[in-house]
Design a protein around this nucleic acid. Structure first.
Lengths: 236, 236, 236, 236
DNA sequence: AATGAATGAGCCTTCATTCAT
DNA sequence: CATGAATGAAGGCTCATTCAT
């Protein structure tokens, strides 16, 4: 009985174990360079067994991508709720979550890598990702921006048209880490803080471009008081 | 004589033609899935000829990456010049250039894709790209930001520590187009304008916390400094 | 169960079958010119199967040489026993054996051919053959010669320093047959008898060159000629 | 004029230079593994030039073998002259020559190696070698032996039927050096002296059974008692 | 005569896939 | 369900051969 239980449990877990192993190998080497022998070895089974659960290497890859992107898809529900409270607070919460997901979670990072790498072989993958993950997220962000504008919190800006601009630092940190490795990662909360700070305050002191660039080096430097306080004159 | 010239020119042009064809195939299919037969066919030669100029597929790939990233490397010189005039104007010029290069130029886009895809197989490639292209660019941006701060044009911000934040929308547009294709590209000058607008003005109207019509916890925090409070769960 | 036995036996027999087929092809064509396709075809399998048992063509060659030279290596034990009886009898027995092995056994002949042909590609092969086969044999022969000298059976001679001289006719017959084919083989027991006769009696009648070359054609010819015994009358 | 002379001389020497280079490469690597590129490089020309003089790699090999075996063929003339003086002296002279040729001359050695290695690919080569070199030599030796027997210098023996037996130590030294390298060569005049000594005197003291100190079956067989017993003092 | 760029057939090796057990 | 031996279609790379110059 116990054995049968083991067996059954085993049987139900097999596909997950295979997908798990496949993910590691696909992430390491890409689709073409991944050998089913290595996947099988990592899963502790033999090559033939993979074919009991997946009809081909391509199907295994698709299943792996689908399975591994499940958290990203599920997380979307939280974002689509009706916005409440300050728009900036919503963005803070959202990007903290996004950062944890797309930068610090190795799996999501690797999903991104594989999507980029295998688009021409699996065009549907990117399509689905856009339809089911990124697209909804962009729309949700757009709604938050509009919500902030409507409540007078945000000024009207291109962020309504391109919520991607808000999202960009997350993608930057993700691709940066994908490309240069964990040792050169941009993470740490300072990066996220900087991201949110720029979102909130913008790069420049005032609300409009400095009217006297011609002053050149003579341009009035803000005093010792670093920065966040502005000369009165610059304020309305 | 003219004929000999033809011959010689042929010989001199061959490597370039092969690299050109290789780039297309590598960009389309990735390193592993690219067949030298296809490269040869695209170059209008036969497979053996490739080996007259490149000792192996890997060398061809490396040569292709090197050759195709030459514009990016050469363009750096312009950026390292001593800054003059308004910092914002420098950024405008720079990002216009970057946008044209990393988003609208298909080749640079595909270089990025291959770097991301083949990092584990060619770790040196990413290292060199960081050392020779992205790293210098980040440093140059950092200098511009400092210059802007010193001349009182910019407020002190995390952009000094993470110039990547300024760069991020370019990467976003690049990866977006890589992943979803030209039909879903974010380009058009509106995106760049929005990027620059956000850079210049920030997302919000003023530098001071909005009087927060609804008050409450959602009110945007003043920039007084350290940042944003995050939900506990989102912190590493 | 019987079927499983078949399977298992198959698996166990495969390497031997492959080595067998490989030997024939390598012997026929040499290492470079041998196609694994031909080896596979001869073994009744496909090319890929070879790689289930041997990691490369070179390894297959080495395994083939090792396997095929096993009889030669094993036969050495008999030679290293302490000599008993007449030294000449020992030599007779030994060379009869060697002749059967190195001349009449096609496999050993072909091993010799391959050793000679592939020395520059597989230098270790010849080294091992010298250390494990020929070297010990030469030493064993040297012991027999010394034994013969010690018991007053043999005169002291260069054969102590160069037992190869005793061995040479075997090598001659081996290479002769390798080079000119079975149709021109030197074999038959007459050659071995002649070899042993020369060993025993030497080429000349007396202890010193005939003092009367002037006798010329008139020199007394031995009668019937064949055979080692001469008519009494022919002797002084 | 001088240039033209150079050119002409060059042109006439080219085939010889190519054959020279080809010999080194064929000897090193065998027919199949030899690259015409390497031959050309060694000859200081380019690959295409080889085809101006030899229609194919096979022809080049055949020409190389023919050219390199010329000394062996030419030397035969000396052997076919009518024998004069003592047969043993003829043999001495002959084997000294043969030894210098087949053992100490690297080229002849390598010719032997190639003949053995490539027989199945170039069957005619061995045939011609037998017909033009080895065969005549064997016949010449046979004549010398008969001459020695007729003049009473040699006893009748199997050497008449198998002159190869006399020749064998030369082949042994040749193949030994081919197989184990110059460092393990058997050469030095001691080997040749031993060879000639065995030829002349035989391995055993006398033609008559040794009084057999231990008697028994081990006693050396008696020849018919044909006075080959030597004065003790004449023996080393 | 000589070059050397180009060819293309061929071989070793790999690996996704199949199937008998 | 699981195995693993076997397959066979490719693909990277080599090299003898050709030919325009």
């Amino acid at each position: 009985m116990a054995v049968a239980g083991q067996r059954r449990r085993r049987k139900e877990e097999r596909p997950g174990e295979i997908v798990e192993a496949a993910f590691e190998e696909f992430a390491r080497s890409g689709f073409m360079a991944t050998k089913l022998d290595d996947v099988a070895a990592r899963a502790g089974i033999t090559k033939g067994t993979i074919y009991l659960y997946f009809p081909s290497k391509e199907d295994l890859f698709l299943a792996t991508m689908h399975e591994m992107s499940r958290p990203s898809r599920e997380h979307l529900a939280a974002l689509t709720a009706a916005p409440q409270g300050s728009a900036m607070a919503i963005l803070r919460t959202h990007f903290a979550f996004e950062y944890a997901q797309m930068v610090e979670d190795r799996r999501t990072r690797e999903i991104i890598r594989m999507l980029l790498a295998e688009v021409s072989r699996f065009p549907d993958l990117a399509d689905r990702w856009r339809a089911e993950v990124i697209g909804p997220e962009v729309e949700a962000l757009r709604r938050v921006v509009r919500y902030g504008v409507e409540r007078g919190e945000f000024r009207p800006s291109a962020a309504e048209q391109f919520p991607h601009l808000l999202f960009a630092p997350v993608i930057m940190a993700c691709t940066w880490r994908l490309m240069f490795g964990d040792d050169h990662a941009l993470d740490g909360s300072a990066y996220l803080d900087g991201h949110l700070d720029l979102l909130e305050r913008g790069l420049m002191f005032g609300s409009r471009p400095n009217p006297s660039p011609s002053a050149g080096e003579g341009a009035p430097r803000s005093g010792a008081g670093e920065g966040t306080t502005l000369p009165e004159g610059a304020r309305p």
